[in-house]
């Protein structure tokens, strides 16, 4: 194969994994934008989504399509539930308490799934299959096309929702100034719950796309995925939605190219090196707004 077509293939690989990072990073960014919380349990919502697909296919005997819808619904519900049970009671507490709670929720989810379903991976082979695309000597797998396409549609939908609808306006208002928004008659609880629901739904979509490619769900799958999506969100500028998308794709591409160069062992290192460099050089990320601490 020609060097050029290898490069194209590797870029497609990067876009494929980047699309999933971007979907997860959006959830991080949305939640951070609205209540300044780094929701470290977000990665585990993907895990729960993936188990929902596996469970409904393997145990309830459902067709893949309803299983996927069920997974997105389960993720959404779980996100809202976590927000109601764990974060709402702490809304006026110091931000550090919230952060620690988020880490606690993450551990709780991972370990309870390990307890219930065992530590080994559950497989969902052939969730969706279709013809792969052959362009010259470049093979684009069906799952790669599907992943990139679906995530771009989701991102477009989200952008429309945030920019053009009333709920989106409310979200932006709350993220700008919570108390002022409340004074204007915006329901804080509803808006925050809606934000969590949106972010978790995207994570649910991410889990389905993840399964299309990797076909395995394991209790700890969300932790590394979540951390990398977090790096993507920071790279793009946490709180910024277009930033999260760009960050996600950038992380995916970095991983693919580092691996392709034969340095696959350094793949994780490269991603976290990006985090360090961003925090040192431009802590607000590519598209983040510099924030002034109010006294």
């Amino acid at each position: 194969m020609h060097l050029f077509s290898i490069l194209i293939s590797q870029i497609i690989n990067g876009l494929q994994s980047g699309a999933i990072y971007a979907l997860v990073a959006l959830g991080y960014s949305m939640v951070y934008g609205i209540i300044l919380l780094l929701n470290f349990a977000h990665g585990d919502i993907i895990m729960v989504g993936a188990y929902a697909v596996w469970f409904s296919m393997a145990h309830l005997g459902l067709h893949p399509i309803p299983s996927m819808l069920l997974a997105v619904a389960a993720s959404t519900l779980l996100g809202v539930l976590i927000e109601k049970l764990a974060y709402t009671p702490l809304r006026s507490a110091p931000r550090l308490s919230l952060l620690i709670t988020a880490i606690g929720v993450s551990f709780l989810l991972e370990n309870s799934f390990q307890l219930i379903f065992g530590a080994g991976a559950q497989t969902v082979p052939n969730l969706i299959s279709g013809p792969s695309l052959q362009v010259g000597s470049v093979t684009v797998s069906f799952s790669a096309m599907l992943t990139i396409l679906v995530s771009v549609i989701c991102m477009a939908g989200l952008t429309f929702l945030v920019q053009k609808t009333k709920l989106g306006k409310a979200m932006r208002a709350v993220s700008e100034n919570m108390s002022a928004a409340q004074l204007m008659g915006i329901s804080l609880n509803r808006t925050i719950s809606f934000t969590f629901a949106m972010g978790s739904a995207l994570a649910g979509v991410g889990s389905v796309l993840y399964l299309c490619t990797y076909g395995q769900a394991s209790p700890t799958m969300g932790s590394m995925l979540g951390l990398k999506a977090f790096v993507a969100a920071v790279l793009g500028g946490i709180g910024s939605l277009p930033g999260a998308m760009i960050g996600g794709f950038a992380i995916g591409l970095t991983e693919a190219l580092v691996s392709a160069a034969g340095l696959s062992v350094w793949k994780d290192g490269a991603v976290f090196a990006i985090l360090i460099v961003v925090l040192l050089v431009k802590p607000t990320g590519l598209l983040g707004k510099p924030m002034v601490e109010k006294v």
């Binding site: 194969m1 077509s5 290898i6 293939s9 590797q10 690989n13 990067g14 494929q16 994994s17 093979t139 490619t213 990797y214 991983e255 693919a256 190219l257 580092v258 691996s259 392709a260 034969g262 696959s264």
Partner: peptide
Amino acid sequence: AFQAQLTNIAA
């Protein structure tokens, strides 16, 4: 994710 390494092999 092993696509990057496998793409090299596919080449």
